[in-house]
Amino acid sequence: MTKPTETGFSAPEFLTVDEAAALLRVNRKTLYELIRLTQLPGVLHIGRSIRIRRDALLAWRPGNGGPALGESR
């Protein structure tokens, strides 16, 4: 399903990991680590596929409230 954007183009409601990584300008391994640590919102597991809700990703504001990737509290 696609939604209209401000520019008139339609964007997918759900993104692949590669698309989300490109949108966030991070390495896909970083994104997989965020997903593994359940720090990324809007993640859906569909079988062996992972999809990320675009609206949740764009609204997400990562902060310094938690440990760095790979660290435990």
Score class of each variant (00 low, 15 high):
T38H: 14
S10M: 06
E71G: 11
H45L: 10
R25E: 07
R36A: 15
M1R: 06
G8F: 04
G47F: 07
Y32E: 11
P41H: 06
A68K: 10
A21P: 00
A11V: 10
G8D: 02
G8H: 05
L69N: 12
Q39M: 15
T30V: 10
V17I: 12
D18P: 00
F14S: 05
I50K: 07
R25S: 11
T7A: 07
V43E: 02
N64Q: 15
L69F: 11
I52P: 09
T38I: 02
A11I: 05
P41G: 12
T2E: 11
L37P: 01
R73A: 15
E6G: 00
T7K: 09
L15W: 08
T38A: 15
F9G: 01
A20F: 07
N27L: 05
V43M: 11
G66W: 14
L24F: 07
S10W: 01
R36F: 05
T16V: 04
R25A: 08
L57V: 06
L58Q: 12
A21G: 01
K29P: 01
T2M: 05
W60P: 03
G8P: 06
L37S: 12
L31P: 00
L57W: 07
I50M: 09
I50H: 07
A22S: 11
S49H: 13
L40C: 14
T7I: 02
P4V: 03
G65E: 15
